[in-house]
């Protein structure tokens, strides 16, 4: 029974049908299904499918945005009933678009994929000053810092953020990944980032790899 429900949730996320998602989530609660499993095996699977489809050029940004909306609708219902300890959250991620840049579609898509993957995501939004990143890292102690930029002027803010972390002695505490149209693997390496992804679906894989590394080091 619950497998069917999970399948339904997956379909509803893929279809970007937020009303159906909310209904199914409520049904799961009524039926005593484990809300964490409903989220991960149901909704998250839907985001995985969308993420793969985007990667293969079968889905586009409008589709992912609607799926994300449906995902968050179900999360709203399920999250209050999930015991944090059950989740075995795999990592905490701090996301933001760097200063001077208001292009946040890529970051938003990434956020929904990360949320679906069970990361604890903190989103600083767009046009984020270096000091804001710094303060949030001190306060939130994330495992991963994800920086996004679409403009060649704003991308030059990335090394500054990494430098600030070094100065503050925080660099070892967090893995930094960078992405966005003008960013390349070479550039990521040059500025001393730990990881790079060409798009949001790949970013999930990069983040998982970095988390593994971090756990090993710790």
């Amino acid at each position: 029974m619950s497998d069917d429900l999970f399948g339904e949730l997956t379909d509803a996320v893929v279809a970007g049908d937020k009303d159906r998602c909310r209904g199914l989530a409520e049904q799961a609660l009524d039926e005593g299904v484990d809300p964490y499993r409903a989220l991960m095996e149901g909704c998250a699977e839907g985001m995985n499918i969308m993420s793969d489809r985007y990667d293969e050029g079968e889905a586009y940004v409008p589709d992912i945005l609607l799926s994300a909306e449906a995902l968050y609708e179900a999360m709203d219902v399920l999250k209050p009933h999930i015991d944090v300890e059950d989740t075995g959250v795999s990592g905490k991620v701090l996301l933001g678009v760097v200063e001077g840049d208001i292009h946040d579609i890529g970051k938003n898509v990434l956020k929904s994929i990360f949320d679906a993957a069970g990361f604890d995501v903190i989103d600083l939004g767009r046009d984020v000053r270096p000091e804001q990143f710094q303060e949030s890292i001190e306060k939130e102690k994330p495992d991963i810092l994800g920086l996004s930029a679409l403009m060649t002027t704003s991308m030059t803010g990335m090394p500054k953020i990494i430098e600030n972390l070094q100065k503050a002695g925080l660099r070892e505490r967090v893995k930094v990944m960078v992405g966005g149209a003008p960013i390349s693997e070479d550039y990521a390496e040059k500025i001393g980032a730990d990881g790079y992804a060409p798009n949001a679906p790949q970013a999930k894989k990069t983040a998982e790899k970095l988390l593994k590394q971090k756990k090993k080091e710790a």
């Binding site: 760097v98 200063e99 001077g100 840049d101 208001i102 046009d127 403009m151 060649t152 002027t153 704003s154 030059t156 803010g157």
Partner: peptide
Amino acid sequence: LPYRKAMSSPSVT
């Protein structure tokens, strides 16, 4: 308007 150094063009806010 891009009066901050990190900006390279106007942004619709």
